[in-house]
Amino acid sequence: MKDYNEIQCPDCGGKIFIDAKLLLQGSSFNCSNPDCGASVSLSQSSYQVANNAMEEFEKLKGK
C-alpha cells in the first residue's frame, strides 16, 4: 500500500489504512477486520479545516 497511514479501529481495535489525500476527497476507509464493518471518513464540514492542515504540513515538510 502506498501513501497509506494506519489507525486503530475505534470499534474492534483492528487496522484501518487511510490515504490522507483520498480522505480529503471524500473517500471512506474500512476496518481490515472482515467481521467488524466499521469505516472512517470526514464530514463535509471538516474538509476545509483538514485540507488547510494538510497544506501547512506539506509546506513544513518542504523546508
Rank of each mutant, 00 (worst) to 15 (best):
G14P: 04
E58Y: 06
S45G: 02
C36K: 05
F29E: 04
F57K: 04
F57N: 05
S43T: 13
D11G: 01
E56D: 12
P10E: 05
F29I: 13
Q44C: 02
E58H: 13
D19C: 12
G62I: 10
I16E: 02
L23T: 07
K61M: 09
K2T: 09
A50L: 06
A50C: 11
Q48A: 12
I7S: 12
D3I: 01
E56F: 09
S45H: 06
A50M: 09
V49Q: 09
C31T: 13
E56M: 10
A38W: 05
G37S: 06
L60F: 10
G13W: 03
I16Q: 04
L23E: 08
F17H: 15
G13D: 12
E58R: 06
S28P: 00
C31E: 05
K61I: 15
D3C: 02
D11N: 11
D35A: 10
L22Q: 14
K59A: 11
N52F: 11
K61E: 11
D35N: 07
L23V: 10
D3Y: 09
D35T: 10
A53I: 15
N30A: 14
M54Y: 09
V49W: 04
M54I: 14
I7D: 15
L24T: 10
C31D: 10
Y47V: 15
S27Y: 07
S28R: 05
D11F: 11
E58A: 09
I16S: 03
P10W: 04
E55M: 13
S41Y: 14
L60I: 11
C12M: 08
K59Y: 05
Q8S: 12
C12I: 13
A53T: 08
G62W: 02
K2Q: 14
S45R: 12
E55L: 15
A50R: 00
A20G: 06
C12A: 07
D35E: 14
G26T: 11
S27D: 05
V40P: 00
C31Q: 05
G62H: 05
A20H: 04
I18H: 06
S39I: 03
Q25N: 11
A50I: 06
N30Q: 07
Y4K: 14
Q44F: 03
N51C: 04
D11W: 01
L22R: 13
I7L: 09
I16A: 06
A38P: 00
P34W: 03
I18S: 11
F29D: 02
F17M: 14
N5G: 12
N33Q: 09
